[in-house]
Write a protein that binds this DNA or RNA. Structure first.
Lengths: 201, 201
DNA sequence: GTCTATACGGCGATAGAC
DNA sequence: GTCTATCGCCGTATAGAC
């Protein structure tokens, strides 16, 4: 439950765009889903649809950026951690009828060549994840280059597997991706650190 | 150059949708890009926009399905083959100003929850790739389960890396994904077979 | 700040002359 | 089979009463 009208609008927009992307979500859809009338959308977001999408991407990006380190915190072995993350993603997807997906990627793919401002916003969200993940893994003992590569591999494989899983309505691509990536890092130990302190910029 | 008007329409549609997805491409855009007037689109495709997208996905899917085995045919080592595929993808992307991308995924992500018929079409294209790839690797000596996992990992990682690379306008995600997946399969030898005979269903 | 009514443009699709 | 004019609808955005 969002407290303010503004927050309700952003939450509704993020949820709708996660399912349908950017172009297929209308201002009327957002108004209806948030409970606010159309006029309120433009009152709170003078920049219209682009501004709403922009802020929704930033919010969702921050939430997702924290999710992966949080999940991985539980593990001491990198291979097991990776398999755990993908298994969790598979479970979430299946339990939402394969309607769930990264809210940023579904918009990013669509606007990369059409809405410059949103492409830049998605890029900065992705950059935050990559830099945050690299810093997290470095803090847990991996060397710099490897920390960055592992992060890129996880994020990329997750995004790709989401598209396949959603389209095929099957968890197989997620589980196969997790299994495959995990194989490689099994036996790589993650150091225990007190405070991870990693978030998207 | 396409020979018939029909082919020109499908080629133009595939090219446009690869860049902008499904919703953001209009019938007028397709008409203009193909050189055919609007009426011709509906003459050749009674099912309208959905039918054009459907056939464009099938065509593009068949072409892409042949591409990866063709590239991998050159190699004897699975690790080197994977790194080669991702390096090639990175080169293509950079040389097209990061505008290039898998024409199927950009539509698939957008329509998975909105246009049932196109979701089913994308699913069958993906299924063709996965089954074709699994059969190809099996023919080159990998055991069944591994052949399927390798295929899923390659396709998933490619699709995800495409989204990141396009948004960030950088080849790094593609190169990192290729490097990471390759590490794992370095030293795995692919058998030489006379005719690969693998294509999407 | 909230909400309704409406403007204006572009969409997919069609009709029908050629 | 090709092409143009146009329909009806729904998109974003706005004006202005409350």
């Amino acid at each position: 439950m969002a407290r303010s009208t503004r927050e309700a609008i952003l939450t509704a927009a993020a949820e709708l765009m996660r399912h349908r992307g950017y172009a297929a979500v209308g201002m009327k859809d957002i108004a209806h889903a948030s409970g606010a009338p159309i006029g309120s959308l433009y009152h709170h977001f003078r920049g219209g649809k682009v501004q709403i999408a922009r802020e929704a991407l930033i919010n969702a990006g921050a939430a997702y950026g924290l999710l992966i380190p949080t999940l991985i915190d539980e593990y001491d072995d990198l291979g097991q951690a990776i398999e755990g993350v993908f298994a969790q993603a598979a479970e979430d997807m299946a339990s939402t009828g394969f309607a769930n997906m990264c809210p940023v990627a579904s918009v990013a793919a669509e606007v990369a060549d059409t809405v410059a401002e949103l492409r830049e916003t998605s890029a900065s969200v992705f950059r935050g994840w990559i830099e945050g993940g690299a810093a997290y893994f470095a803090a847990r003992g991996l060397d710099g280059a490897r920390a960055r590569d592992v992060t890129l591999a996880i994020v990329g494989a997750l995004e790709g597997a989401f598209v396949l899983a959603r389209t095929l309505r099957s968890t197989e691509p997620l589980l196969a991706a997790g299994r495959t990536l995990a194989l490689q890092y099994r036996g790589v130990t993650l150091a225990r650190v007190s405070a991870a302190a990693v978030g998207p910029r």
